[in-house]
Design a protein around this nucleic acid. Structure first.
Lengths: 194, 194
DNA sequence: AAAAAATGTTGACAAATGTCAACAGAACGA
DNA sequence: TCGTTCTGTTGACATTTGTCAACATTTTTT
């Protein structure tokens, strides 16, 4: 269960893990099964956990005053589910995170992370890299949303994250891209013809 | 010249500066005057400096294949101008940063920052907070761009950053919001009538 | 197995936004 | 000061995207 997390950490840090670090990580991240439609985080709460996804798929989204969901982030195996702002600043979140598929996750609280893993260079390095990558990805998404047409945004998305196209239905992808499901359906129709 | 930076650091960190830290900061951040239209960073280069803006205004933008500029970020006094990804990872940037007004800035290279200030807790804390705030702001901008109409995006922007409306012309604001200058002009016309 | 919910497509039409061109006043540079 | 560039507005029209409704299929739940 924890093997994929250990592998992930090794992949994203240059510092090697020390003797006993493996055990500490395994004891600090708690395995939890989150069934489809169950919430990891609900709007208004403080984001208590950072979740590493071992198997399954989750989504993070906000809900507007009309009740429409806007997908902020999609997460599958070997990615993290968390509202980083709420988790680190302990502020109430404006987002929801729920399981789209039955999901096996490894959870850690901020307190446990700091007390048990805060002194582990490999983990701090990995966390910093995750944050940097996340910021870069957000920056690119901003650029895409102000620069490109819906069609180009979908093409880019499908090229960069082919997995996601398989795992999530079109209306979820459409929401992520900021378009309606009808528009996405028509864009796909266009692209097939080409 | 460096006073506003020192004040800024104190404001954004809980750790106090130690005796001599002021001097070290002043010697590490080099004052530079950047005249209007001069570049701090050009596409394809590695972002060599992080710039704290003491006075003036800068913009960060990408240019698409049609030659259209897309504004990523606007910066005035007491904000930072930098492509964080390029600066920290030493990768070539896809962005340009230039001065919109004659600007007084304080520059620091990554090497100087790490060697002179890397061990200063207050500065590390501030840097981390800046990165967190930046990520949160990007997240909100993504949500806005996929959720809201151009009119609402402009209203929110004008409410949150009234300074920017004064300092930058409409076509720059329009580009930041991902709309054309004509559409922005019409939106403003609408809002006046209300 | 039956009913309900989720998914995806399509048509008709509406609304939002973009494109192109013309114009006017302000600001700037030679 | 003269000419040029920058800025902002407006009209006419085109394109993109959204809205609503109907429908067929598939999947899930009871």
């Amino acid at each position: 269960m924890h093997d994929s997390l250990i592998a992930y950490i090794k992949k994203y840090s240059t510092t090697p893990l020390k003797e006993g670090d493996d055990e500490l990580i395994k004891n600090t991240f708690l395995a939890k099964r989150i069934r489809k439609k169950q919430f990891l985080l609900q709007e208004g709460e403080v984001c208590k956990y950072t979740a590493f996804i071992v198997k399954g798929a989750m989504r993070q989204y906000s809900v507007d005053e009309k009740g429409t969901e806007h997908i902020v982030r999609l997460t599958i195996e070997n990615w993290w589910a968390v509202d980083r702002e709420s988790f680190t600043m302990l502020t109430p979140s404006v987002y929801n995170i729920d399981a789209w598929e039955d999901t096996d996750a490894l959870l850690v609280t901020r307190a446990d992370f700091l007390s048990n893993l805060g002194g582990m260079p490999a983990l701090n390095e990995m966390t910093r890299k995750m944050d940097e990558n996340h910021a870069s990805a957000l920056q690119k998404r901003v650029i895409a949303s102000i620069s490109f047409s819906a069609e180009k945004r979908y093409e880019d998305f499908a090229r960069q994250y082919p997995e996601f196209i398989q795992r999530f239905p079109q209306h979820i992808i459409a929401s992520y891209l900021g378009i309606t499901k009808e528009t996405l359906s028509r864009i796909r129709h266009q692209l097939v013809k080409k």
